[in-house]
Simulated assay, not measured.
Amino acid sequence: MPERPQALFAMTAQNVPHLFPPDLLARLRACLDIDPALVVQDFTGPRVRAALARTEVLVTGWGCPRLDPAVLDAAPGLRAVLHAAGSVKGFTTPGVWERGIVVSSAAAANALPVAEYALAVILLAGKDVFASRDRLRARRAAHPYGEIVPGLGNFGRRVGVVGASRVGRRLIELLRPYDLTVTLADPYVDAPEAARLGVALLPLDELLRTADIVTLHAPETAGTRHLIGARELALMPSGAVLVNTARGALVDHRALTGELRTGRLSAVLDVTDPEPLPADSPLYDLPNAFLTPHLAGSQGNELARLGRTVVEEAERLAAGEELRHAVDHTALNRAA
């Protein structure tokens, strides 16, 4: 039997049992020589340095320290990083790629719950559920049950997806069974690819003008900061809903607050800028702003899906097979 590669956990310690419940941990340890009692949150210290010196595989997650040149020098045998979360931009450095270290990410697995959240919000927004709940709460028994409300419903509702990211593409798949008209804005997607996705490709301004619900799935880059500002919000039709499950910085919150105060638009925000918002932010109290605390991504039992992705990658690595979720570092400048 071949010797198992030496591995080390590098992440927030309390997440390990959620990512790797007993059955998954057993599979991971069957293919990697890894100690679940040693979870690194700081690469300094003699015990950690000694572990790094023999580490071939890092199993990382949220809270992984930065892999700077000093850490890489301390781990001369490191050949793979298996990340049990989404983006690797926060902890990888140029040296990782220069040394030919393969990096795998569970971003595809993390995309599913975000897409599911966005789907649920889109369908609920089409029924005006958020405002209807508040009206019911205010009117109580006086609320007219069974009243037909013009403009409500999801038949033919126009949904604009901004960004054909993993989440954006997964959401497009989830939207297919519904009687919705779906459009896409993404500068990296051409018409043939949009046709393969089954959506109409539009410039961002045209998407904003024609969508009842706009859902953001673009990465945060220098070019996408405040992608949705005062000008873009003004393009959206009255009654439209903006959904953001991507990154808070995609939206100019000052401009959004001003637009929401007019009552013309609504917003569902799972991410904000800053995060969390200051306690005195008007977005907490505006009736047409629905906030959730960055929970669209993997939560609770969904973390095990991320762990399973890493375990499967570790099994491929141990078998000498190509990793299925290897990160293309040349595309990181336009990825989340």
Rank of each mutant, 00 (worst) to 15 (best):
271 V>A: 04
126 G>Y: 13
28 L>G: 01
336 A>F: 10
27 R>D: 00
250 L>Y: 14
176 R>P: 05
40 V>F: 09
276 P>D: 04
237 P>G: 03
245 T>C: 14
259 E>H: 11
158 R>M: 04
32 L>W: 09
148 I>R: 15
162 V>I: 02
131 A>L: 15
53 A>E: 10
158 R>N: 00
206 E>I: 00
69 P>E: 01
164 A>N: 06
298 S>Y: 11
257 T>N: 09
8 L>W: 01
190 D>H: 14
285 D>R: 06
206 E>Y: 14
329 H>G: 00
320 G>P: 14
224 T>I: 05
229 G>Q: 06
10 A>I: 15
136 L>P: 01
26 A>C: 09
35 D>G: 05
286 L>A: 07
143 H>R: 07
122 I>L: 00
65 P>L: 06
4 R>K: 13
231 R>V: 15
35 D>M: 06
190 D>L: 13
159 V>Y: 01
201 L>H: 10
68 D>A: 00
146 G>R: 11
71 V>E: 01
76 P>Q: 03
47 R>V: 15
21 P>G: 01
168 G>P: 04
190 D>Y: 13
251 V>D: 12
47 R>P: 05
300 G>E: 02
231 R>P: 15
154 N>Q: 02
168 G>M: 07
49 R>F: 11
121 V>P: 12
41 Q>K: 13
122 I>K: 00
133 R>Q: 10
37 A>C: 10
58 L>R: 01
224 T>Q: 06
286 L>P: 08
137 R>Y: 07
86 G>E: 08
103 V>A: 08
177 P>K: 05
67 L>T: 07
77 G>C: 10
150 P>T: 01
161 V>T: 04
141 A>N: 10
264 R>W: 13
249 A>S: 13
60 T>W: 01
245 T>Y: 11
36 P>Y: 03
246 A>Q: 15
151 G>T: 06
119 L>H: 14
82 L>A: 02
115 A>C: 07
160 G>Y: 07
4 R>I: 05
56 E>I: 11
287 P>H: 04
105 S>G: 08
251 V>A: 12
116 E>T: 14
44 T>F: 09
293 P>V: 05
197 L>W: 07
215 T>Q: 12
280 D>A: 13
59 V>G: 10
130 F>D: 00
257 T>K: 07
198 G>L: 12
281 S>I: 03
274 P>M: 03
6 Q>I: 09
78 L>P: 12
65 P>Y: 01
36 P>N: 02
227 L>N: 02
81 V>T: 05
246 A>S: 11
250 L>D: 00
172 I>A: 10
149 V>Q: 05
16 V>N: 09
201 L>A: 12
266 S>Q: 13
204 L>F: 14
318 A>H: 14
227 L>P: 04
188 Y>V: 14
277 L>D: 06
145 Y>K: 13
314 A>C: 08
183 T>W: 02
262 T>G: 01
123 L>N: 03
189 V>T: 02
60 T>C: 02
200 A>M: 14
26 A>I: 08
84 A>W: 04
325 H>E: 12
87 S>M: 05
304 A>G: 04
257 T>E: 04
265 L>N: 03
15 N>K: 15
217 H>K: 09
175 L>T: 00
36 P>C: 06
153 G>D: 02
169 R>M: 03
231 R>Y: 10
